[in-house]
Design a protein around this nucleic acid. Structure first.
Lengths: 171, 171
DNA sequence: CGCATTTAGTATCTATACTTACTATATTGA
DNA sequence: TCAATATAGTAAGTATAGATACTAAATGCG
């Protein structure tokens, strides 16, 4: 990436450190940046065209065919305004189909098309494989530790998974 | 947040968990999301108007007055296209000033205005204080552990950014 | 039943974030 | 020296990401 290989005069003259560089928010932003770049590179290398967010949406829709957009958004923690655009693009690519819900005339039920299922099947092993490359500076033990802490920091929605029968959204 | 307390039919019917929810990239995305939301809320509560990215840029420019945009970008790991827009907005708010460099006629040197220095002074304690609220589910020990792992994953917090393949600064 | 509230989804606006392409300038190396 | 290359910055295009406001439809409550 450009930003990583900058050779500007000031960079070469070694810029002074800032306060933000020690801060949690900044570290997390950089991790996110790195993670999306690894994803983009690996997906492209596999000959696929999919963003991290689109992949997450496909995965969620695959697991819950016929769910409405709000349900998918809640599952993967997207804003409802954002999910609309994401699904618009997936629909434009022919990966998902939306049908009006009979149960709720406001809602649109979302399902993967054949092409969507196929792409998800292709992408899943690629994405599973790249997870370890997202934190390349860490040993496997440290990586596990980091991810456990991340899950704990995020709260119960992500700490219990498909094995659990509990409803994470019950109020 | 909206997305966390959605009460849609499908959410109430307990959506099935997905593969992405276990994945490093997804966890990191959610941490980033949470972190920016905490920042926005606290800054707004303090009566200030500044995004996390704008704050980081102000801090970097404050520490390196007269640096060019590429230098600032390298320091806080922004894309050069992104930093242009960020500094455009800071300039529009009257927080920074750009002057053509005499050393390099391509470059534009960036400095904080009085208003920029003043705003940074006001914002710094607010931002320092909110760092602990970014990872509310963790104990102080766990938070320290998490941040140490994050720093390790990213490589040295330095102007010399992590670059596993090549070293652009050794010339 | 009727009305207030909530919810599903879209539209619009602002702000990252990165890619490709382009101009202008600087640097390098044969 | 001069041609190849690299860099500074901008521009245009795409894709998140969230705030706000709006329509339409569903729900809750008296």
């Amino acid at each position: 990436m450009y930003i990583l290989f900058s050779g500007s005069y000031f960079a070469a003259m070694s810029l002074k450190h800032t306060h933000v560089q020690h801060m949690a928010g900044h570290l997390i932003r950089r991790l996110h940046q790195s993670s999306t770049q690894v994803f983009a590179a690996r997906i492209k290398a596999a000959g696929l065209d999919l963003t991290p967010v689109q992949f997450a949406a496909l995965d969620a829709i695959h697991a819950n065919p016929g769910a409405d957009q709000a349900g998918i958004a809640a599952l993967i923690a997207y804003d409802k305004a954002t999910i609309g655009g994401v699904i618009d693009r997936l629909e434009a690519k022919g990966l998902v189909a939306r049908t009006p819900s009979k149960r709720d005339r406001r809602a649109r039920e979302v399902r993967l098309t054949e092409a969507g299922e196929s792409l998800l099947t292709q992408a899943m092993p690629v994405v599973s494989k790249l997870q370890d490359d997202i934190l390349p500076g860490l040993s496997p033990e440290e990586r596990t530790q980091f991810l456990d802490l991340a899950r704990k920091a995020l709260g119960p929605v992500d700490t219990h998974h498909k094995s659990s029968a509990r409803d994470p959204f019950c109020r």
